[in-house]
Nucleic acid binder design. Sequence first.
RNA 1: GCCCCCGUAGCUCAGCUGGAUAGAGCGCCAGACUUCUAAUCUGUUGGUCGCAGGUUCGAAUCCUGCCGGGGGCGCCA
Length: 556
Amino acid sequence: MTPEQLSDAIVAALTALTDAGSLTLPDGVPARVVVERPKVREHGDYATNVALQLAKKAGLPPRELATLLAEVLGQADGVASVEIAGPGFLNIRVEAGAQGALAAQIVAAGSSYGSSNLFAGEKVNLEFVSANPTGPIHIGGVRWAAVGDALGRIFSFSGADVTREYYFNDHGAQIDRFARSLLASAKGEPTPEDGYGGQYIVEIAQAVLAKEPDALDLPDDEAQEVFRAVGVNLMFDEIKKSLHDFGVDFDVYFHENNLHESGAVKRAIERLTEMGNTYEEDGALWLRTEKFGDDKDRVIVKSDGKGAYISGDLAYYLDKRERGFDRCLIMLGADHHGYVGRMNAMCAAFGDQPGVNLEILIGQMVNLLRDGEPLRMSKRAGTVLTQDDLVDAIGVDASRYALARYTTDTTIDIDLELWARQTSDNPVFYVQYAHARLASILRNAKDLGIEAPGEAGGFDPSLLSHEKEGELLRALAEFPRVVAAAAQLREPHRVARYLEDTASAFHKFYDLCRVLPQGDEEPTDLHRARLLLVAATKTVFANGLRLLGVSAPERM
RNA sequence: GCCCCCGUAGCUCAGCUGGAUAGAGCGCCAGACUUCUAAUCUGUUGGUCGCAGGUUCGAAUCCUGCCGGGGGCGCCA
């Protein structure tokens, strides 16, 4: 019996009461009620606060309503007992058989256990990382690679049609600075003012020369153009490779420059002008963002005739919508939160609905620490921590997991020495170890010739009556709810935290409940039932880790 | 000055979107492997949930105001 089934049973009980006339609910019976796992074990397997929630509407004292409900609910299939506690909580115990049946259901569902059709039929565009192609991805961007990719997996698992997208800002002044920096390096000159000075500039400059040996013979402006075109492509390749090595592959790498060259920017501006949302002032073209909730209006075409930065975003958003995306999600660091207002206003100026068609997710920064002190990242000082540095130090799994297990609302401090040292007690290994242990049991079972029921026949779910078995089963039953919450709230960290809780429940079960027969012992139905529970648990870890893009090892 | 995020155990952080006695890991201390992987488990220690009000049956959670930390407020990108 899962929480969802219990919720249904409670709703059915409420309906029975209203049908019988012993309860009156002016707003009708709710479609779903809150079923939670109590923190205190004495409070039962599950608890619900419906009586407290509905007491006022029903015009009854909470405990009286709870009493009515308890009588009916106590008769429901799979419910062992219902107690009234405190101000009107219902503490529910579930029959072991009803609970144990879940193990077979999970094994039958396999890699789809936890999936849903919550976002079925929705085309979701998920844009993340989108780091400037003027250097390698550093830790500021890696967080979004880990979190964004996990969110994409969670959305897909929840039925959405997801497209992962990376926006290359390969247009404008920063790219000019990048090109000048490459050219200067190739000529052996010092890094220009406002230029980029890392070692990677030297390497890319040399790589450009290897491809275009005659580049330096050209006049400076033409040479710079060569370094721009070739250098940017080399940078793209490097970024894509880093992301690929990190397990993140985008469906679309979108080049901002194309929007300018194809006339898409011009068209977007025309569209906004037709809708009466632009005006000219001081030689520039302004977008009426204030009308749509922004602090003030924004320039979209500067007085020198060039598009302002946001002009690319206008065209890009329009392009996404024209490609049929109902929801455009963009993950940005807190250093960009100032754009939220104007982006939402831009969305509204197109006649769309901010928060629905466009959703901007702001996450907090990642800081680099050394000896507990914050270290200002500087390319010149060589104190930039790149994604590759992080992976070299602690590996892909540990990196992805560590970055994905925090709320994006909190700032993450990375002390590389500390992170590398703590590798062995990183929670990722706690979870992965659980999976490896489960795999090991299944291997041993196979060697012993013991088959878990399910494929080979039925099993008696009521045999899974041990306290630790119950706790493990209830943890497994939570998985679909956790995935759904992670998708709806855009909070992948919930999956990681859930896996840690479930790993704890499993390790405790493992400690007290022997799964396989020992010595000459003959396999019993209990052994087989536990083996099925093991298979179900392994399924949940495999599915959960997959959602985070972290491997589920068979051995450790 | 205005806007956003954070403040929970010595440290790092959860807290199921208002529920019961606020949890976990690490750290400290003490235990458990001739048996399915000890990267594990068991027990102990540890808290005015930044402060002050408010909303109600009930607040770490929602509202207001302070305090402290971080980030942002360009015809830069």
